[in-house]
């Protein structure tokens, strides 16, 4: 049931798949691209606006939109038809980014015992440690999706050199605020977690604050640039829930 409903397998043609008994995924590409990411964000907003019966929740991942449905209410074939009609109503790959986006400048310590995998990750990317840090801080990255853990961004896209795989063995635990790299992306971890990504930087950012009026700092579409700092300065920034980050509205 999970094979694509249509035979459209070429890049930039959306496919509809089931995810469990109560989920449907609309995937806009097999690989990450700017256009597919925009399409996933915009399509999710359109599904939310449609307010279909039995759709209980929606989310977007890097290149896909997810609908959680009540399988006892929703007829799967009818839902797929509705999704097809909505897909055909416009060119989702040409969609703009969400409004109210912000630029975050986030201090991070690269390497040292706070982020012990910088050297090996840089080596896999064919760089020295210094070159690695320069590369990771030169680029303005976008929050392509929030996921895995509460408020946790996937940031991209990094230069080709960072197309390095996840580790086959998990790191048992990286701390809150850890910055980790794989497959041309950075993840900024919002809770301590095991991971297959390589821990190259450490921030003092608290991305999820359950008691705060607005519990989640970052939103999909926001932009992020990291600035190198020292362990001593980072330690002082831990008193700030934003971890010393500055934020400006960009559109």
């Amino acid at each position: 049931m999970t094979q694509p409903v249509s035979d459209e397998r070429q890049t930039n043609t959306p496919v509809i798949c089931t995810a469990g008994v109560d989920g449907v995924v609309v995937r806009f590409a097999d690989t990450l691209s700017e256009a597919a990411n925009r399409a996933a964000l915009a399509f999710r907003a359109a599904v939310e606006a449609a307010q279909w019966d039995g759709v209980q929740e929606t989310s977007s991942s890097l290149v896909s939109t997810f609908l959680r449905v009540d399988p006892l209410v929703v007829d799967h074939d009818l839902l797929v038809n509705d999704l097809r009609t909505l897909l055909n109503s416009r060119d989702w790959y040409a969609a703009g980014l969400p409004e109210g986006r912000r630029l975050w400048r986030i201090p991070a310590v690269f390497g040292t015992d706070l982020a012990p995998q910088l050297a090996q990750a840089a080596a896999q990317a064919g760089m020295s440690e210094d070159e690695g840090v320069a590369s990771l801080t030169a680029t303005r990255l976008r929050v392509q999706t929030i996921g895995f853990a509460p408020g946790q961004p996937y940031l991209g896209t990094l230069p080709d050199a960072w197309d390095i795989p996840r580790q086959s063995q998990l790191t048992a635990r990286v701390p809150e605020g850890a910055l980790a790299v794989a497959i041309r992306q950075l993840v900024l971890f919002s809770v301590p977690t095991p991971t297959g990504w390589q821990h190259v930087g450490q921030t003092a950012m608290r991305l999820f604050q359950p008691e705060a009026p607005d519990p989640f700092l970052l939103r999909a579409g926001d932009e992020v640039q990291f600035t190198p700092t020292t362990p001593e300065k980072l330690h002082r920034m831990r008193r700030d829930p934003k971890g010393g980050a500055t934020v400006t509205v960009i559109g």
């Binding site: 989920g23 989310s59 853990a149 063995q169």
Partner: peptide
Amino acid sequence: LSEVIVPGDIQITGDGTPFVLLCECQT
């Protein structure tokens, strides 16, 4: 590519081990 996870998903990690994801799983 990272994609949505739902409780009940059986994920095969890099070393080939299956994990069944439960209610408090990653998203």
